[in-house]
Design a binder for these strands. Structure first.
Lengths: 143, 143
DNA sequence: GTTAGTGCAAATGATTTGCACCGAA
DNA sequence: TTCGGTGCAAATCATTTGCACTAAC
């Protein structure tokens, strides 16, 4: 069920399509719009491919990030979390601190601020705009 | 040279004023507007207080963060970085990826976006808006 | 005197790496 | 056949913890 676009992108970059890689991608696609930790990915992949190793997961996540197929974030005092990128429009996220579910925000604050910074010292290369909170599901669970 | 406000804040919260704590604070104050790693802080403190231990540094950073005297960030694939908070106006940062130097931005994108999100699923609790790049010094060095 | 703080050494948790073997192209 | 990929075990790196001792209040 792996999307052709993805297969092509891997090929283009000289990466092979192994069972492990396929299984990892299946999990990521199945959890589109949700940040998962490496461990959560590993556990889910293991259900299909019981022999898979943790380092294989890490190595693949690194590769996928490098070719812009994966969005990696670092929340305070938590392991890194990953979300697959299937659409390349520039956007930011609201992120549930419990379950990692995300919701895109099609608003970028950078535009509002660029003018006032142009005469300053810094050469900008990246920016981060992330909103955190609890999704309705996790809010309910807490009660 | 430790500011009285700081001493008071520690006292208020039931924390003692040890030499180690003072030395850590001196370093942090001396590097206001600059994010330092725990290791950088440790190394600098060690110059004054050679017997200080790494875990003392970590324990104090944790305490300072808890009482809102310290801003902690997690950059991708780097150890956490810390910056002392001497003024409590809400603001964000431009951060130099080389030297950790920061520049405050007195603009918060949250206000622009709150209305459009109010009818959504998420209960917001925090947000992050950070700009990354290179300060003029580090830009020059690169050439 | 009491309680928080410290140094030290060992533990933990996430992630990375070396190496010999394996399998996709 | 040739590299890239994998599993395994060991290493690494940042951070935390248990414990006995110490010092601030």
């Amino acid at each position: 069920m792996l999307k052709n676009k993805i297969k092509e992108k891997l090929k283009e970059n000289g990466y092979k399509l192994t069972d492990q890689r396929k299984a990892i991608l299946e999990v990521l696609i199945h959890h589109e719009h949700q940040f998962l930790t490496a461990e959560e990915i590993y556990t889910r992949v293991k259900k299909d491919l019981s022999q898979i190793n943790f380092s294989t997961v890490y190595r693949n996540l690194e590769i996928l990030e490098k070719i812009d197929m994966l969005h990696k974030i670092n929340l305070e005092d938590k392991p890194s979390q990953y979300e697959i990128i299937l659409h390349h429009d520039h956007h930011h996220h609201v992120i549930c601190k419990d379950c990692g579910k995300t919701q895109p925000i099609h608003f970028c604050p950078l535009k509002q601020i660029l003018n006032s910074l142009e005469d300053e010292d810094f050469t900008l290369t990246e920016h981060k705009f992330e909103l955190y909170g609890y999704c309705s599901n996790c809010t309910k669970k807490k009660k």
